[in-house]
């Protein structure tokens, strides 16, 4: 665990990405830690970030293990001149990285939601059965988060990773936007276009809107379609049990809980 650190005390860092809210660096040292340094204009609520960092300590051990294995949960705050300017987190494990066109590339969910293109023809894609098992992993992750009062908020197909190495596995990035039910997030989040709950107010996620987004993840993953929504006519594309869950996902206030998807995903043919 990293705790609070001063920016000046971090070893020379190499930039690996420039995101919407900050620049991500690999910190020198044996830890394999990443630093996310927020852009100047981003307002960070240091107290909420501290609360988020401490949160998993209060989870039951199996939940804590799942969160540690499947998320880049922030593990330290970074200060500069008395201000919180960034966070530390673990880097996504190598099984969530592949090589495309000779360069490393995170295995983002988006690859599974678009038709295969020549540029990523080398990518090993999951079978229908593996898609179903990946969906189970995403549902399990949401189940554990929701069970501990955590909302994901902004779900995007760039921040959810997948792997087939040593069995289907998933990993979530950009966890600083997660929030405790009823509290504000440490940093304000945007809603990703195409992943917005039509019944929710922008930037104000609820348990129901999070469940809607999980339904999008599951349906889009199973159907390999980035645009499908629960209100589309899915008859013939899903088996009856999943169809019924999709139907509930279309009705605000009645969205299936994460756990509801698990039995339906257990053995179905898509």
């Amino acid at each position: 665990m990293a705790g609070d650190v001063q920016l000046a005390d971090l070893g020379v860092a190499r930039q690996i990405a420039d995101g919407g809210q900050g620049v991500v660096f690999r910190v020198a040292g044996p830890d394999g830690l990443l630093l996310k340094l927020y852009h100047d204009e981003v307002r960070v609520n240091a107290d909420e970030l501290g609360r988020l960092i401490a949160l998993p300590e209060g989870f039951a051990p199996p939940d804590r293990r799942l969160v540690a294995a499947s998320t880049a949960w922030p593990c330290g705050r970074v200060f500069h001149r008395g201000r919180c300017v960034g966070l530390l987190m673990r880097e996504a494990p190598p099984r969530f990285v592949t090589s495309i066109a000779g360069a490393p590339r995170l295995l983002e969910l988006q690859f599974l939601l678009y038709p295969r293109r020549p540029m990523w023809r080398e990518l090993v894609m999951p079978s229908a059965d593996e898609r179903r098992r990946l969906a189970v992993r995403y549902a399990r992750l949401f189940q554990v988060l929701h069970g501990n009062g955590v909302l994901v908020g902004d779900v995007s197909m760039r921040n959810l990773l997948w792997s087939l190495v040593r069995g289907p596995g998933v990993f979530a990035l950009d966890c600083d936007g997660f929030r405790l039910l009823g509290r504000r997030p440490a940093v304000r989040q945007a809603d990703t276009a195409g992943w917005v709950d039509p019944a929710a107010r922008i930037g104000l996620p609820t348990l129901d809107s999070d469940r809607y987004k999980l339904a999008l993840v599951v349906l889009r993953l199973l159907l390999a379609d980035h645009a499908v929504t629960p209100t589309d006519d899915l008859g013939g594309r899903l088996d009856p049990e999943l169809l019924e869950l999709a139907d509930r996902a279309a009705r605000p206030g009645e969205r299936p809980a994460a756990a509801d998807w698990l039995p339906a995903l257990a053995g179905v043919q898509v």
Binding site: A101, G102, A103, R105, Q110, Y114, M119, W120, R158
Partner: peptide
């Protein structure tokens, strides 16, 4: 540029 955009399904689309 080609690598960054071509391996980003959303943007390439």
């Amino acid at each position: 540029l080609h690598r960054a955009v071509g391996t980003d399904p959303v943007v390439a689309d």
